Simulated scan of single mutants.
Amino acid sequence: MVFRAFTTLGTGDAVEAQARGAISVLEEMTDEGEPVISAYRAVQDGPWLLDILFTDTTADAADLWLETAREMVPNLPDFQIDPLAERDWVAESQRQLHPVFAGRFTVHGSHDSAKLPPSRWNIEIDAGRAFGTAHHASTKGCLIALERLARRPGGLGSVHDVGTGTGVLAIAAERFGAGPISAGDIDPVAVRVADRNVRATRTLTPITLRTAAGPFRRADTVFANILARPLIAMAPRLAHAAKRTLVLSGLRRSDRRRVEAAYRSRGLVVAERVLIEDWVTITFRRPGGAIAPHADALPGTRLVVRV
């Protein structure tokens, strides 16, 4: 039997942050992907829904899990619980997501492919348990920054995407003719999702995907859409990885000054900021262009998934 526990969190930016925080905590309680946790809006600007899908457990075990969840995440509204027939509930949640427009890109799920006119700027992304459908302002900000960089003299050059999630930024870079392109994520599930999306989009330029904690290769342009604390901790490695340009996102406006300070101390200067709601994407550049070449590979990698 499949059980679905769901609740409505509310609307607005603060609720979106609450949803992300709740998922971050609750996923620590999962065991080999059970239960499946998702948060989404059924309609644009609608209320955020939190879904907990138990695909292989008993009703008593689900009740115990939810009781623990409410202890771990204070102020969660009461859940409603329904027994459900066996279905692909991750796919069902995906189908609730609407297309997102970021610059010339349209990021959409496979359920919307037939509804959109053909375009090289359409990117089909089915997230599964990975982050990066462009519904969040941080991913949308990265796509806008990516397009602006691609349209400037010299373009993107080689690209490395740290914390790739669904692989959307690597795929977007390929659309603009960047290369070579590499991407990694600390979560092997996200890497498998990114690999699936890369294959589905039939990229012309190969994209190297690896499970890696941080950058594993140097590139002309490096993207890292993560969170403020790990970005500050990885400042030495990310600054070294970016030969020419570094784009950081996943940052609240309140994080901006301390993140910028960490990278300015590494010799980078702020070239541009993209502000969307309470989120900021920062583009850094290295004064004087590319630095002297070093070995492109960086330590700390494991598990080559696709080349």
Rank of each mutant, 00 (worst) to 15 (best):
156 L>G: 03
182 S>R: 12
164 T>M: 11
116 L>V: 02
212 A>M: 09
213 A>Y: 12
244 R>I: 06
187 D>N: 14
260 E>W: 13
232 I>A: 12
51 D>H: 14
30 T>M: 13
53 L>Q: 05
3 F>C: 00
273 R>H: 11
58 T>S: 15
68 T>E: 15
16 E>D: 12
61 A>Q: 11
19 A>C: 02
163 G>L: 05
230 P>C: 07
242 A>M: 08
199 R>G: 01
45 D>S: 13
166 T>S: 14
287 P>V: 10
18 Q>V: 08
52 I>H: 02
104 R>F: 10
282 I>P: 03
84 L>H: 08
87 R>W: 01
70 R>Y: 09
67 E>N: 12
14 A>F: 04
55 T>D: 13
122 N>I: 01
293 P>R: 07
84 L>E: 13
48 W>P: 01
46 G>Q: 05
140 K>I: 05
306 R>Q: 04
149 L>Y: 09
54 F>W: 13
207 I>T: 04
40 Y>D: 11
216 F>P: 04
30 T>W: 07
175 R>I: 05
300 G>S: 09
226 I>E: 11
173 A>G: 03
203 T>C: 14
98 H>P: 01
144 I>T: 12
163 G>W: 03
234 M>H: 01
265 S>Q: 15
13 D>H: 14
208 T>Y: 02
93 S>W: 04
48 W>C: 00
119 S>Q: 05
175 R>G: 02
160 H>D: 01
259 V>R: 02
252 R>Y: 15
294 H>F: 02
177 G>A: 06
54 F>K: 02
93 S>G: 10
27 E>H: 11
236 P>G: 15
184 G>N: 15
301 T>Y: 00
110 S>C: 10
134 A>C: 11
14 A>M: 10
136 H>Y: 11
253 R>N: 15
218 R>T: 05
142 C>L: 12
65 W>R: 01
149 L>F: 10
33 G>R: 07
124 E>F: 00
98 H>Y: 03
147 E>P: 03
99 P>A: 10
282 I>C: 13
145 A>D: 08
163 G>R: 03
236 P>Y: 13
140 K>L: 15
250 G>C: 06
182 S>N: 05
54 F>T: 05
85 A>N: 14
97 L>Q: 04
98 H>V: 12
97 L>H: 07
193 V>M: 09
197 N>P: 10
297 A>R: 09
29 M>D: 01
233 A>D: 15
62 A>W: 07
91 A>V: 01
5 A>D: 00
275 L>Q: 09
238 L>N: 05
222 V>L: 10
285 R>G: 06
170 A>M: 02
66 L>G: 03
27 E>Y: 09
64 L>D: 14
121 W>N: 09
233 A>T: 15
92 E>H: 05
161 D>E: 10
58 T>V: 08
